[in-house]
Design a protein around this nucleic acid. Structure first.
Length: 306
DNA sequence: ATCCGGAAAT
DNA sequence: ATTTCAGGAT
């Protein structure tokens, strides 16, 4: 195209990125070499929309208690929901429990390695399937999360952020180095987005990449007027959280009155939240009309005979 | 396009 | 008080 000047590459130099990662990589427990594919899967479920710092202690307890899919599947849903604690989005815990049952029963207690099969598992979507294929099985597949999307938007496209697009996977695939370096490259790209090329206050002064279109363009701010944020206080989500707090705190079924005190300001909202928890299968009603965490009355995982 | 937690940082 | 955080399901 342009013949006067050599066009700058503005890809992402694997050498620069990987050299930086060698020195800056965080020592996260699920990156240790002895960690199994299942345990990596557990970390990916927990990390969905949740910061690393909050996941770490819960993941450590979790894999010590339930190291395999079959061990997880043998636990009761109630025990799984209690172990999940206040990590948030408890439907993830239920999906993880369901995922464990599928892997144990249909895949010989071994996490599948191919993306297509992974995508069929409960709670495994576009990102998580490829993260497992890449980080657990060392495959050269594109792993696109919010960090990667942001880094590519800035370094390659010169804009502060871009919405998710259908072409994101192909674009990131084209950035991957050939051969065995791809998984580490993907981990490094995510790490760069997490600790240098961050959403709010990027630390461009310590960025290892010498070529960045966003830098060349003078760090233009986001053009789109910040999509409407999902609030939390006063929403059904908060009410659901309060109701689950009550059920997690106890050791068995509770009365409706015990649940009601969790949210007194809007009884219609409280009823709606409880309905949604029942619909999601996170809460169950006993034959005597009490409420309990799903599987609370079952003896699965309790080591008792029927 | 919406819903789904909760905590820490700013 | 707002923003952000290793997304998925509907």
């Amino acid at each position: 195209m342009s013949r006067s000047m050599p066009q700058p590459e503005y890809g992402i130099d694997p050498g620069e990125l990987l050299a930086w990662f060698d020195t800056a990589e965080r020592d996260l427990p699920w990156r240790r070499p002895e960690v199994t594919a299942w345990q990596i899967l557990v970390s990916e479920f927990m990390l969905q929309q949740t910061p690393v710092n909050r996941v770490e202690p819960i993941w450590l307890d979790w894999i010590a208690r339930w190291p395999t899919p079959s061990a997880t599947a043998a636990a009761s849903a109630a025990d799984v929901l209690r172990a999940w604690g206040k990590l948030g989005y408890p439907r993830r815990a239920k999906r993880l429990h369901e995922c464990a049952a599928v892997v144990a029963a249909e895949h010989g207690d071994v996490v599948p390695a191919d993306v297509e099969t992974l995508l069929g598992l409960p709670g495994v979507g576009t990102y998580t399937a490829r993260a497992i294929a890449c980080f657990a099985y060392r495959q050269r597949v594109p792993v696109v999360d919010t960090n990667v999307r942001r880094v590519v938007a800035r370094v390659v496209h010169g804009v502060a952020e871009t919405p998710a697009r259908a072409g994101d996977l192909a674009e990131v695939a084209a950035l991957l180095p050939e051969g065995l370096a791809a998984p580490r490259f993907s981990a490094a790209l995510m790490e760069l987005g997490a600790i240098v090329c961050t959403a709010r206050n990027p630390r461009c002064g310590i960025c290892p990449l010498s070529a960045c279109r966003w830098k060349s363009a003078g760090y233009p701010p986001a053009s789109t007027p910040a999509r409407r944020v999902q609030r939390y206080a006063g929403t059904d989500r908060q009410v659901r959280g309060r109701l689950l707090d009550v059920l997690r705190a106890g050791t068995g079924p509770v009365t409706r009155a015990q649940l009601d005190v969790a949210w007194l300001t809007d009884t219609a909202q409280r009823d709606r939240a409880l309905d949604s928890l029942l619909t999601d299968g996170l809460v169950e009603q006993t034959s005597t009309g009490l409420f309990a965490l799903a599987g609370e009355g079952d003896d699965a995982g309790e080591g008792r005979a029927r």
